[in-house]
């Protein structure tokens, strides 16, 4: 195992994500109402909450897919501002996995993965393909490298998307409901990969509805509702002794359906 595979060693400077009083409006609707969050290097944070609570918006603000209007977001020591150079520098260090996979359908799996390393990191094709194959092996589908995304199952596509994000050697990984668009029997193969990454020491912020995954892997669970963070707790306390009434209601709804 190379150093790359075992997670970034350079993230010893703690607090790689710092959000202070983040506000976000869509027109008149306030999606985020002053969110504060600090994530340390190597930490796995799971964001839970009912739909419309602003959790997706929040993590999409972390790599500027959405623009926040007030407050500060500092990723790996770089503040997200209008400066295009800052944004592209941050996006290089932050990998993201989407609910709908968002693979490029006109490129093969291997080209999907190597496109960004070759053009953004300026690696040689050989180097990029070598690392891409390592990651494809790690997520368990090296034999699919020359196929097109449309020929793969949903679970395989999502694993390609994870490999694509990781081949850029990001310091932080964002997961935006990575299993929500998958058939039930394919969820576990993606969760296994995510568990593996968490153990390898990646800094992970994940929005998910997989309670088992959250309980097992997360170091902290953040519960959001109505654009605010309602509760931050350890997984045991969150599921066994939630402090907030809203959390109790949410847990009773999802656990007793």
């Amino acid at each position: 195992m190379t150093a790359i595979m075992d997670g970034p060693e350079a993230t010893k400077v703690s607090d790689v994500i710092v959000c202070r009083d983040v506000h976000k409006w869509y027109g008149d609707f306030e999606a985020l109402k002053g969110v504060d969050l600090t994530v340390e290097a190597g930490e796995v944070v799971v964001i839970l909450g009912p739909s419309g609570s602003g959790k997706s918006t929040f993590i999409r603000c972390m790599n500027r897919l959405e623009e926040h209007q007030e407050g500060r977001i500092i990723i790996d020591g770089i503040e997200l501002t209008h400066d295009v150079r800052n944004i592209s520098e941050i996006r290089r260090e932050v990998g993201m996995v989407f609910q709908q996979f968002n693979l490029f359908p006109h490129l093969t799996v291997l080209d999907n993965i190597t496109l960004a390393p070759i053009n953004v990191r300026k690696w040689s094709r050989d180097r990029a393909e070598e690392l891409a194959m390592k990651w494809l092996t790690r997520v368990g589908i090296p034999e699919q490298a020359d196929k097109y995304p449309g020929q793969l199952s949903g679970g395989q596509q999502q694993r390609v998307a994870i490999a694509r994000a990781l081949t850029m050697q990001p310091k932080i990984l964002l997961f935006d409901e990575p299993t929500s668009a998958l058939d039930p029997e394919m969820i576990s193969e993606v969760l296994d990969v995510m568990r593996d990454l968490a153990k390898a020491g990646y800094t992970i912020v994940a929005v998910t509805h997989e309670m088992g995954f959250a309980r097992e892997v997360a170091q902290r669970i953040i519960f959001m509702d109505g654009g605010q963070i309602v509760e931050i707790n350890s997984p045991e306390n969150f599921f066994n002794n939630p402090t907030h009434e809203r959390t109790k209601l949410f847990l009773s709804q999802i656990l007793n359906h």
Binding site: M96, F98, N102
Partner: peptide
């Protein structure tokens, strides 16, 4: 082209021309 394609490209740090 679906919005997700633009977002995936952005999230990888690819610049506009690329």
């Amino acid at each position: 082209i679906p919005k997700g394609q633009y977002e995936a490209a952005d999230s990888l740090g690819i610049n506009t021309l690329q």
